[in-house]
Design a protein around this nucleic acid. Structure first.
Length: 275
DNA sequence: CATATGTCCTGAGAGC
DNA sequence: TGCTCTCAGGACATAT
């Protein structure tokens, strides 16, 4: 489940392709349902072949690569997607191969086990229409005041609201639980019931949790789905305070971590430390 | 407008 | 052992 830290780690790893030239694009076909690729392969090739790759960026939970003169190539991993410049975890789940020349790596791969992700080449106008207008500020660029402005009147549970990419971009199910534990806020509380002091704690926890997770190159869960662009496991899973730890002792107080379901997603929290 | 729910997909793991 | 079933959750479409 690549969230901001995992996507940022992939972005950093894939940045080595900057300056390289696109020599080929292939979408291997097999027994799996094809992922969304836009525009269709023939047109994607026509626009990209021979083009030089520019800087690697990130829009929320998406990795972006400038393709000079063509637009922005956007990798959206959703649940199990990976942007790789190394051998993939399996051959059959490679969804797109981009051959490169004049580049430290020969190939850039998009790998996706479940195939819910996508690869799109968009113009600047399309990017503005699809993302700039619809996503909130990057989670790392938020402030306590912005949290209050954007969510302070919402009647949703704060954990559910943190997942709303229109409020702030980059937080997913795993880090929402981690952030609220560090902030000491009960995930079931409604946003409208939180004070400025709560938003300050949440705001600080967002930066603390996400920056530490980036430093440790993300979380690789027991399914092993997430890997960095170099196909390395992350390290933050060893630091999880509550996520996937139901029944285990809270690292702060020792009481058992509880799992509940909110908006059809798992939430983990400590009933003693989070109020 | 805000909020809630259903859908897509594959593979791991549980239960029998 | 091998089958069936449930579950994981990102973003988006549709419903309330």
């Amino acid at each position: 489940m690549p969230e901001l830290p995992e996507v940022e780690t992939m972005r950093r790893g894939v940045a080595v392709v900057a300056g390289g030239r696109i020599a080929s694009i292939e979408a291997p076909r097999g027994r799996l349902r094809p992922i969304a690729i836009e525009p269709r392969l023939a047109l994607l090739r026509r626009r990209c072949l021979g083009r030089v790759i520019g800087r690697a960026g990130r829009i929320g939970k998406r990795v972006t690569l400038e393709v000079e003169g063509a637009g922005l190539l956007i990798f959206e991993p959703r649940m199990t997607g990976l942007v790789l410049v190394a051998d993939p975890p399996s051959r059959e789940h490679v969804r797109l191969r981009i051959g490169l020349v004049k580049c430290p790596v020969e190939e850039l791969l998009y790998w996706d086990r479940r195939g819910l992700g996508s690869v799109r080449l968009l113009t600047a106008d399309e990017v503005a229409a699809r993302f700039d207008a619809k996503l909130g500020p990057d989670a790392l660029a938020m402030t306590a005041e912005l949290w209050g402005e954007r969510l302070g009147r919402s009647r949703r549970a704060v954990k559910v609201a943190l997942l709303d990419q229109r409020a702030a971009a980059g937080i997913g199910n795993l880090y929402a639980s981690e952030i609220l534990h560090l902030a000491g806020v009960d995930p079931r509380r409604t946003c409208a019931g939180l004070s400025a002091k709560h938003w300050r704690r949440i705001d600080q926890a967002v930066r603390d949790v996400l920056s530490e997770a980036i430093r440790l190159e993300g979380s690789t869960l027991s399914d092993g789905a997430y890997r960095s662009a170099l196909n390395a496991a992350g390290g933050y899973q060893n630091r999880h305070r509550v996520y996937d730890r139901a029944g285990l002792p809270c690292s702060t107080c020792g009481r058992a971590v509880v799992r509940i379901v909110q908006a059809q997603r798992s939430t983990f929290f400590c009933p003693r430390c989070q109020r």
